[in-house]
Design a protein around this nucleic acid. Structure first.
Length: 653
RNA sequence: GCUGCCGUAGCUCAGCGGUAGAGCACUCCCUUGGUAAGGGAGAGGUCCCGGGUUCAAGUCCCGGCGGCAGCACCA
């Protein structure tokens, strides 16, 4: 038969001649469809419209509006950029250029890196290439021919890519006019389909194949969208994110600062530390209610200890090591009187210390589970380039806890933790949550059998908790698999905060045991878990999520009492005293400034509530209440206003 | 750590070989003003650090340190 049957998404079927191309098929349905078409989905696989259809299939014509189209626009845009770059900068080698979230990039090999000034030139060239509208043409090449071709052209990276492709892979080349690139495809019909809604954003270095031992390439990032309106919306969103930057807000709101002498460690100012205390207090109450005990363990411990835990070998280069030697105080002498032989290290994590507490005395199976929490301050010597405000620091405090449990308690403990975590995120305003199961990494401790057991344990727990999840192979910790909890913030960014890690290795290494019902000794299993993760980082996330306008119970200054005239000063101070006595965080503003000025200033400082007092309020013992973001004022009796505010400022638990 | 860009007043930034500037913030004075900037005056700087070029260096060159953006890393 020279006819094939194509089934459309609505279930209707059409018979067409074998070898009809996707584009011809689209045209046979409707001219308008052919015009809007950018690709065809054949049995769930995206294909070029130019490719002939050879067999019966489920098909769907993809249009610009479809989600998959965005990826194609971005991918095609990367190709267009590569052509533009090679046209403008001869001798530049192309490597790879995928589409990514919100856009695309292309990595180039060039002796001189690109600068921001190059971007407008490249963009202009790209617009020419798009306008020219050359069709993307797919060709299948012989493997050796392709390697020879790219080698001859001086495209060593491309040649390497082809050489490393599995032998079964078809080598496809896409041409757009004169220019061509190795590519799996598919592509849209022509470069014109990319459209005008793109922008080159930044240049950066990137390692060849993501390997820091390999060459540093120069990467150009771009963003691309279906329409210019979408592009504009995206750029606006970036501006919004910049306005929310916790480093900027932290300075403006006088929350914290960082300085050279303590890189990566935070100086918490009075106001920032109020947020910390409110948050920590809340978590502490939640933990107590969930039957956790709270402990505090040493900051500095002997290297022997870290050797036993396994951290010394694997993570020493990220630990702060302190020589256990008496330093010289004589001027002009060496810092140490003798060559240091013994070392101590600042703890990079709390778990080994918690095992020590567990090991004091003999534990019975009846004692388990023991849920041991610590707001543990840890130090990790992070690479300079990794430090970023509160988000990535060298000294941080975890809302950490280790649950020592029997194996038969893993599931119920995991489920209980998931419940607790959900409550906390819900209270903090994060409702959009995704869960990942990170499984065994290449470098790890413990037998495969142990890992099988641990991974199965977490899968069972997820099932019992009724949580959807995706697996992240190879992302687990060296001692066990983990669940990662990702929260989505108000502007759509995702953050990994909570974790639950199952560990059969550390109890073994540090020889923790309990006596079972039968009188024999057993190993407990450890569940490492955190909800906020790092408190520093979580406060950073809160600041950005709320754009500095924290919920009343977390706000560093909950209420400012501002006077209109100095006649109200005495009354204002009395009001402040009463609010403070009721446990609120309050400030008085008696300055010789107009009320407009005061309202503006405290609004910009994101103070949620202002009590404004003039002569009238002082005489009537009332307050004029102005809330952040509202233009209206409410007038109330002081007693009623105070009682209402105290109620509103209650933490969620 | 790697690549690129940047480092001037508390903050945001201008100046780019020829005696350090603006706005906001700060201090003082006038003003007591009813819900997002009242007026005036003043004070404030090793122009990141160290070398070099030059008659002369925030300004040009080299090295360090730090910041930012990616990359790599994140127990």
């Amino acid at each position: 038969m020279n006819q094939i049957t194509l089934t459309l998404p609505d279930g209707s079927t059409r018979s067409v001649a074998r070898s009809t191309t996707g584009m011809e098929f689209a045209e046979s349905i409707a001219k308008s469809l052919a015009k809007a078409a950018i690709a065809i989905e054949v049995n769930g696989q995206l294909r070029d419209l130019s490719r002939p259809l050879e067999e019966d299939a489920q098909v769907k014509i993809l249009k610009r509006e479809d989600d998959a189209a965005l990826e194609m626009i971005r991918h095609d845009c990367a190709h267009v950029m590569a052509e533009a770059v090679q046209a403008l900068f001869p001798g530049t080698q192309v490597t790879i250029g995928p589409s990514i979230e919100n856009g695309f990039y292309y990595d180039f090999a060039r002796n001189e890196p690109f600068t921001l000034e190059d971007l407008p030139k490249i963009e202009a060239k790209m617009r020419q290439i798009i306008e020219r509208g050359a069709p993307f043409e797919r060709e299948v090449w012989d493997r050796d021919d392709a390697i020879a071709f790219f080698t001859k052209k001086g495209e060593m990276y491309k040649a390497e890519l082809i050489r490393d492709l599995p032998g079964t892979e078809t080598i496809t080349i896409y041409k757009q006019g004169e220019w061509l690139d190795l590519c799996r495809g598919p592509h849209m019909p022509t470069t014109k389909h990319v459209g005008p809604a793109f922008k080159l954003m930044k240049v950066a270095g990137a390692y060849w194949r993501g390997d820091s031992s390999k060459a540093m390439l120069t990467r150009i990032y771009g963003t691309a969208w279906r329409t210019e309106a979408e592009l504009k919306a995206y750029l606006t969103q970036l501006e919004e994110a910049e306005k929310r930057d916790h480093r900027k807000l932290g300075r403006e709101m006088d929350l914290f600062h960082l300085q050279d002498e303590a890189q990566g460690s935070v100086f918490w100012h009075d106001k920032g530390y109020r947020i910390w205390l409110a948050l920590e207090g809340y978590v502490r109450r939640r933990l107590k209610n969930a039957d956790y005990i709270e402990v505090k363990t040493p900051q500095l411990m002997d290297s022997r200890f870290w050797e036993a835990s396994g951290h010394w070998d694997k993570y020493r280069e990220n630990m702060f090591v302190v020589p256990d030697v008496v330093p010289n105080t004589e001027p002009g002498q060496k810092i140490f009187k003798e060559e240091p032989r013994h070392f101590m290290a600042l703890k990079p994590m709390n778990c080994p210390a918690h095992v020590q507490i567990f090991k004091q005395g003999i534990k019975s199976y009846r004692d388990l589970p023991i849920r041991m929490a610590e707001f543990g301050c840890c130090h990790r010597n992070e690479a300079h380039g990794a430090l970023h405000g509160l988000m990535r620091v060298r000294q941080f405090t975890q809302d950490d806890a280790h649950i020592f449990a029997r194996e038969d308690q893993i599931e119920s403990e995991s489920v209980a933790f998931c419940t607790l975590l959900h409550k906390v995120y819900d209270d903090l305003g994060f409702r959009d949550l995704t869960v990942k199961l990170a499984t065994r990494p290449a470098v790890r401790a413990g037998s495969d059998e142990t890992w099988d057991k641990a991974e199965a344990g977490l899968r069972d727990a997820l099932k019992a908790a009724g949580l959807d999840y995706v697996e992240a192979p190879g992302d687990g910790a060296f001692y066990g698999p983990k669940l990662e909890f990702h929260i989505r913030d108000a502007i759509g960014r995702s953050w990994t905060c909570g974790t639950l890690q199952l560990d059969f290795v550390l109890p073994e290494r540090l020889d923790a045991s309990y006596i079972g019902e039968d009188g024999a000794r057993y190993r407990p299993v450890m569940l490492h878990r955190a909800i906020l993760g790092s408190i520093e980082r979580f406060i950073g996330i809160l600041i950005e999520n709320y754009a500095g306008k924290l919920p009343l119970w977390l706000a560093p200054v909950q209420c400012v009492v501002a006077t209109i005239t100095s006649e109200a000063d005495a009354y204002a101070l009395d009001v402040v005293r009463q609010l403070e006595a009721a446990g609120l965080r309050v400030e008085a503003d008696l300055r010789n400034e107009k009320i407009n000025y005061k309202v503006r200033e405290h609004s910009l400082a994101k103070v949620p509530v202002m009590f404004v007092l003039g002569k009238r309020e002082a005489e009537e013992k009332t307050v004029a209440i102005r809330r952040l973001g509202e233009e209206k004022q409410a007038f109330e009796k002081l007693d009623a206003a105070l009682a209402a505010l105290v109620k509103q400022a209650q933490p969620p638990y």
